[in-house]
Amino acid sequence: MNTDTPPAELGDFLRTRRARLRPEDVGLVSYGTRRRVPGLRREELAQLAGVSVAYYTRLEQGQSPGASDGVLDAIARALRLSPDEHAHLRNLARPARAGRRPAPRTETARPSTRLLVEAMAAVPALVLTARFDVLAWNPLGHALLAGHLAADSPQRPADRPNTQRLLFLDPHTRELYPNWEDEAPRAVSALRVAAGEYPDDRRLAELIGELTMKSPEFAALWSRHPVRKCAFGVKSFHHPLVGPMELTFEMTRLPDSSGQCLMMYGAEPGSSSEAALRLLAAGVASASPSSASPSSATAGTSAAAATPSP
């Protein structure tokens, strides 16, 4: 289990961001070549942000929970943080601030959301929790990402798929992503954002702890403290049934307090990826409507038992 406290998380985050900047990057004169720490020193960052060294030190040590927006904004500018990193800094610096999101409790997708996902017959779609548990997917989403898993597994909390766990710990999923080395940092970045938004989510902390212990690659990426929401972009797949695909994706947070997101995939019109996705959809559509296991119908053969995931 990830036992890092919010103050420790804040200190780690600020230190990694200081380490990636050199004095000359921000217009400071660096005297000499021997520096005890990589990147900016605390006093250099404090100078850039216009705060005292003592105050910044207390902030980095998690001893200034009442930091103002102005101070945090100044530090974000000095560190050249991205918008996602800036928001993450605020979450870590003020864990007790009013309005902070509570740990998500909803563990099922709303019936209306399920109907929406099911209606997207030509679009791979799934519903995810804030910690990336799969609450629902349509047959094409299941066929694309996890045909080797039971189609009804999202309905069973005991073995509900988690896309980040699959990415790091499931060999079938790893084979699904030919550019796994690009996909892994994106997944860790998204988990960092979630951990900042939901610091009291015990299951999220347990997931991070599990991945840290079982995957050295995850642990190495996590230590770098990457932060990016990754709500849209392009993913490369090498599906065992239809071959290579380049699919765009969009992740949209549902308009309620559950923290759930709707994830959808698409292909460029007229591309080979669109043809491959249509072929996969045709295999899904050819399955018996009364089939109790869309995972086996997806492949059309026993090969479905060896299909990858997200």
Rank of each mutant, 00 (worst) to 15 (best):
P157L: 03
A8M: 10
H88Y: 14
G27Q: 12
L221M: 14
R58V: 07
R101I: 05
F218D: 03
G243S: 07
E118P: 01
T16Y: 02
M1P: 08
S271I: 11
R278C: 13
A297N: 04
V188E: 03
E175G: 15
A275L: 14
H142F: 05
G39E: 05
G196S: 04
R17M: 05
A205G: 10
H86V: 02
R18P: 02
T212L: 02
L254D: 08
R224H: 12
A297I: 00
F249N: 03
V37K: 01
E197H: 06
A282K: 10
V53R: 15
R80K: 12
P23M: 11
I75F: 01
T252C: 03
W137Y: 05
Q47K: 09
A87C: 03
G259K: 11
T173M: 03
G196L: 08
A190W: 04
V29S: 09
L21Y: 06
L14T: 06
A219W: 02
S309M: 10
D159H: 10
T212H: 10
A292R: 15
Y198N: 10
V134Q: 11
L280T: 04
D12G: 15
L204K: 03
A299Q: 04
L72W: 05
L279W: 01
W180A: 06
G27I: 14
I75W: 01
R42A: 07
R100K: 09
A125Y: 04
T33C: 00
M263E: 10
A8Q: 15
V127Q: 01
R58P: 01
T57W: 05
G233T: 11
L277T: 05
D69A: 15
S286T: 13
A287Y: 03
A281W: 02
L149M: 12
G70I: 06
A292N: 09
L126C: 14
P139D: 14
T33G: 09
R41A: 06
T298Y: 11
E107L: 10
G62V: 09
C261Y: 15
G62Q: 04
V234G: 00
E181F: 01
G141C: 06
R192D: 02
S291M: 06
P157T: 04
E206S: 08
T163P: 01
A305Y: 07
I208G: 00
E183F: 00
L59H: 04
G66W: 00
L28E: 06
L277E: 06
G283L: 08
K229L: 09
P6M: 06
S112P: 00
M263A: 09
A267C: 11
Y265T: 10
M245N: 08
F218K: 02
R101C: 05
R253I: 07
R35Q: 12
R224G: 07
E183M: 14
R131F: 06
L14R: 08
D133S: 09
L48I: 02
C261E: 14
A136D: 13
L72P: 07
S189M: 05
V242N: 03
R202P: 00
A184T: 15
Y56K: 08
E246T: 15
F13S: 02
L169I: 07
D69K: 07
P139E: 13
P255G: 11
P154Y: 04
A8H: 13
L72R: 13
L241P: 00
